[in-house]
Amino acid sequence: MSDALSEEFFAEVSDKYYPQVLEGLERLGAGDVAGGIEVLARPLHTIKGVTGFMPGFESASTFTHKVESFLKKLQSGSLPHSADNISLAAHGVNSIFAVIEQLRDLGAPDQDEIDAVCEVLAAASGEGNGTACPAGGRCLRVEQEPGRALLYVTAPRIHRKHQRDQIVGAIIGQPQETPVVLDLAGVKTFGSSAWEDVSALAGHWSISVRGLAGAARETFHASDMDALLAVLPPDAPAGEAR
């Protein structure tokens, strides 16, 4: 992917489209669903169209279309504006840019990741087979409480990129003034790359962790995350770190 057309496209993604997408995601996370999706629609529609005409980029166009369809269902009200659906929308949008990065860096996307996201989008839209958490599917549940957002990680092991992207997407989907609690009570291992992804957001969101145990706790401290993320006791109100 080194020709002039693709290089120009990658530059526009970085300099033009991604800043617009960040604005849209911030609005979405702040509860302005209609406004957020309206902002997102412009860059995503352009990405879908451009990649559809670029040889080797067709998978990005098809995937963007799937994410667009989910956003349109949220916008029309045919899907509820639940915390899980908002989080999934943010994850889908972020996954588009992950696919573009894979095309740029590797020459091809990770089709397994694309398929996993598409399967979860379809299931949330009522188009899936109804099975709970298929392999490669959702790994967390988002609940809103007064004054904070709770992100319950439901997979026992967090290492793969699509899992990390879901967690990052769920955090980005929250207003920056809302404290985020990452609940890992059922998690056995949480990879260092996952901690790095979460800690990269700590300067913009107030992120706490609770339920740390076993290898997940060891990796947390080995990665010096305690300097960036507060540790909460079980069921503690946001802000009560130890």
Rank of each mutant, 00 (worst) to 15 (best):
Y18D: 03
Y18V: 13
P19K: 04
P19T: 04
Q20V: 01
Q20S: 11
V21G: 10
V21S: 08
L22Y: 07
E23L: 13
E23W: 01
G24C: 12
G24E: 11
G24I: 11
L25Q: 14
L25F: 14
E26C: 05
R27Q: 15
R27E: 15
L28H: 09
L28W: 06
G29M: 14
G29C: 13
A30Y: 08
G31R: 11
G31D: 09
G31C: 08
D32I: 03
D32H: 11
A34H: 14
G35V: 15
G35N: 15
G36D: 15
G36K: 08
I37G: 07
I37K: 05
E38D: 14
E38C: 08
L40Q: 06
A41M: 02
R42P: 00
P43D: 04
P43Q: 02
P43M: 05
L44K: 00
H45D: 02
H45L: 00
H45V: 01
T46D: 06
I47C: 07
K48N: 05
V50A: 12
G52C: 06
M54V: 05
M54L: 15
M54G: 01
P55H: 09
G56F: 12
F57Q: 05
F57V: 02
F57I: 02
F57Y: 14
E58V: 09
S59F: 04
S59P: 06
S59W: 04
S59C: 11
A60P: 13
S61C: 05
T62K: 09
T64L: 06
K66S: 13
V67Y: 01
V67G: 01
V67F: 00
E68N: 09
S69W: 00
L71A: 04
L71G: 03
L71T: 00
L71S: 03
K72A: 13
K73D: 12
K73M: 13
Q75G: 12
S76W: 05
